[in-house]
Simulated scan of single mutants.
Amino acid sequence: MVALFKEFLGTEESGGSASGTTFSSSKAQPYHYVVRDTEQKGLCLQDGHLVAITLQGANAAQEEPISVVPNRHLELARCPLILGIRGGTQALSCGTGPQPQLQLKEVKLLDLFHREVEETTPYTFYKTYGGTTHTFEAAAFPGHFLSTAPGSGEPLALSPPPAATAFYLAPAQETLSPGKGAAPVGGGGSTPGRGGAAPVGGGGSTRGGGRQAPVGGGGSTRGWGEHPWGAGGGLCTE
């Protein structure tokens, strides 16, 4: 996530917040990623809720990528991400009540990026990389993580361990316009647009300045269980 944070905040510092940061680019856009649980269930939008389904046949076209921007107010070393869907036009909220309630809100991620900490915390998740998978802990409800149920077609939830809280994460193949579904993962040769992450696998792709590096460069194809960004130091490397 180094490129994302550097583009929005102009910093690679490993601690503290960036509330007083002079933002590096007024043209910074959300980055987009495809998320799957360890059973390879992907996220789809059904009746206004994100559900995890087994992707096969026609279901594959329904896969909904997540969009992310940094939360500049919270501790950067913990990789605080404001999450959403539909190219960043809807945000994923944990709610503001005494108990977490996962729901989608009609608010743009870029608008939330500029708001104060009290407004952005319910939409923020700390992303942790565990070697092959990632977890997303709700900033407003410590100890509660994005999770999926064992069966297909169940809503994405917020749960404490030992629920299924581990996810594979890979850059979406192309920049997503609002309301557009996920592009298939894999296949090189495409050119990510502004705000998009590089395609998974396939060397030889072209990316704009400051974009995320392509995964599995040099023509290799990287599997879901592998590290989707490659090695490197600094902020939110994993």
Results as ranks from 00 to 15, higher is better:
His114Cys: 11
Thr96Trp: 09
Val107Ser: 04
Pro98Thr: 15
Gly97Asp: 13
Leu76Ile: 06
Ser67Glu: 07
Phe113Lys: 03
Cys44Pro: 08
Ala28Leu: 07
Asp47His: 12
Lys108Glu: 09
Gln46Cys: 12
Lys108His: 11
Ala61Cys: 13
Ala52Cys: 12
Cys44Leu: 13
Glu106Cys: 11
Arg72Phe: 00
Thr54Glu: 12
Val34Ala: 10
Gly87Ile: 04
Leu92Glu: 00
Gly97Ser: 14
Lys105Glu: 09
Ala58Asp: 15
Pro100Gln: 06
Gln40Glu: 14
Ala91Trp: 00
Leu76Pro: 01
Gly87Thr: 08
Phe113Pro: 01
Glu75Gly: 06
Asp47Ile: 11
Ala60His: 14
Asp37Asn: 10
Leu104Asn: 04
Leu109Asn: 03
Leu110Ile: 12
Val51Asn: 09
Glu75Asp: 15
Ser67Trp: 03
Arg78Asp: 06
Glu75Lys: 04
Gly48Thr: 08
Pro70Met: 04
Gly97Phe: 13
Ala61Glu: 15
Arg115Tyr: 05
Gly97Cys: 14
Gln103Thr: 10
Pro98Glu: 15
Ala52Ser: 11
Asn59His: 15
Leu76Trp: 00
Glu75Arg: 07
Ser93Gly: 05
Ile82Gly: 00
Leu92His: 03
Ile85Trp: 04
Ile82Phe: 01
His114Ala: 12
Leu76Lys: 01
Gly87Asp: 04
Val34Arg: 08
Ala77Asn: 06
Lys105Tyr: 05
Ile85Pro: 02
Ile85His: 03
His49Lys: 15
Ile82Glu: 00
Arg86His: 12
Gln40His: 14
Ser93Ala: 09
Ser26Met: 11
Thr54Tyr: 12
Leu76Val: 08
Arg86Thr: 14
Gln90Met: 14
Asn71Pro: 01
Arg72Lys: 10
Leu104Met: 09
Gln40Trp: 12
Lys105Val: 08
Cys79Phe: 03
Asn59Val: 12
Leu92Gln: 01
Thr54Ile: 13
Glu116Tyr: 00
Gly42Trp: 01
Ile66Asp: 03
Leu92Gly: 02
His32Leu: 11
Phe113Thr: 02
Glu39Ala: 13
Gln62Val: 14
Gly48His: 07
Gly87Val: 06
Asn59Lys: 15
Ile66Glu: 03
Glu106Leu: 11
Gly88Met: 02
Lys108Pro: 03
Gln90Asp: 10
Leu43Gly: 05
Gly88Lys: 02
Gly57Met: 14
Gln90Pro: 08
Gln29His: 11
Ser93Thr: 06
Ala91Thr: 00
Pro70His: 05
Pro70Gly: 04
Ala28Gln: 02
Gly87Arg: 03
Ala60Val: 15
Thr89His: 10
Ala52Asn: 07
Val34Ile: 10
Tyr33Leu: 11
Arg78Tyr: 08
Lys108Cys: 09
Gln62His: 15
Leu55Asp: 10
Gly97Pro: 08
Val68Pro: 00
Asn59Ser: 14
Asp47Cys: 11
Ala77Gln: 09
Asn71Gly: 01
Leu43Val: 07
Leu102Tyr: 08
Pro70Thr: 05
Ala77Pro: 05
His73Asp: 00
Glu119Arg: 05
Thr54Ser: 13
Asp47Val: 13
Ala77Gly: 10
Asp37Tyr: 07
Phe113Asn: 00
Arg115Gly: 03
Gly48Ala: 05
Glu116Cys: 01
Arg36Glu: 06
Leu83Met: 08
Leu50Asp: 02
Ser67Pro: 07
Glu119Met: 09
Leu45Cys: 10
Lys27Trp: 14
Ala77Tyr: 02
Ser67Ala: 11
Gly97Gln: 13
Pro70Asp: 04
Glu118Phe: 00
Arg115Glu: 07
Glu116Asn: 04
Gly48Leu: 07
